[in-house]
């Protein structure tokens, strides 16, 4: 299973489970009807078809119910998303620069690294930039992704709650070694992080 290292990931997964539930329900419903009808109303069993031109009541029902369901799903997705779209003001800022085909992270004191070290339980804002083509900053365990493009000011944020190391991918196809453009996010304790940040 995929790691769930942020509170946001927890929310996304809850939404996912609800939607998967709804989808499985409809898929099973439709598939069952298809198979049942194909057997029950088979030519051999039912040589004479009955013409039914339609049914206004049914049309209304199967217009309104899906409408309500999709509006509900839309709302679930939007309410998670808006949390992701508004980084807390006190967040610690790290600059991430993407270039073909590597990541570079620059911290406030000027320290640079190609692995993303972050302290646990702290709001981290990542400012994204690219030196060449479009890339995308993607940490599956955090369920976040944001494109990094030259001359644009994209950013994202997270608050990692679990210590550990997670994969950070480039998700936007960027040429020859796109698939090699991944690194690690290391979530460490605050002390460890400060030691690392202030070391040479």
């Amino acid at each position: 299973m995929i790691a769930q290292a942020t509170n946001f990931a927890q929310n996304v997964d809850n939404t996912f489970i609800i939607i998967v539930g709804i989808c499985v329900f409809f898929l099973v419903l439709i598939t069952t009807l298809l198979i049942t009808f194909a057997i029950k109303y088979n030519k051999k069993r039912n040589p004479k078809a009955v013409n039914i031109h339609g049914n206004i009541k049914l049309e209304i029902i199967w217009t309104i119910i899906p409408t309500l369901i999709v509006l509900y799903i839309f709302w679930l997705g939007w309410s998670d998303y808006i949390e992701l779209a508004t980084p807390p003001k006190d967040a610690m800022v790290i600059n991430a620069t993407a270039s073909m085909w590597q990541w570079k992270f620059t911290y406030s004191n000027g320290k640079q690294a190609d692995t993303l070290y972050v302290p646990v339980n702290e709001n981290i804002k990542i400012k994204l930039n690219s030196t060449d083509v479009s890339h995308s900053f993607y940490i599956p365990a955090f369920r976040i992704k944001r494109d990094a493009m030259p001359n644009t000011n994209n950013s994202t944020w997270f608050n990692a709650e679990k210590l550990g190391s997670y994969t950070l991918f480039c998700a936007e196809y960027c040429g020859l070694n796109h698939s090699k453009m991944y690194t690690e996010v290391k979530v460490v304790t605050k002390d460890k992080f400060n030691n690392w940040l202030n070391s040479e």
Binding site: N11, V12, T15, F16, I19, V20, C23, F26, L27, I30, T31, V70, I73, F74, L76, G77, W78, D80, Y81, L84, S136, Y138, P140, R143, I144, K145, R146, A171, E172, Y173
Partner: peptide, 23 residues
């Protein structure tokens, strides 16, 4: 088409799309 459409609903959901897009 039902499977394609339902997974399309997942991708239309903003928070899920952030995770799933480009995968």
């Amino acid at each position: 088409f039902t499977i394609g459409g339902l997974t399309g609903i997942m991708l239309g959901t903003l928070s899920l799309d952030i995770h799933l897009t480009d995968t």
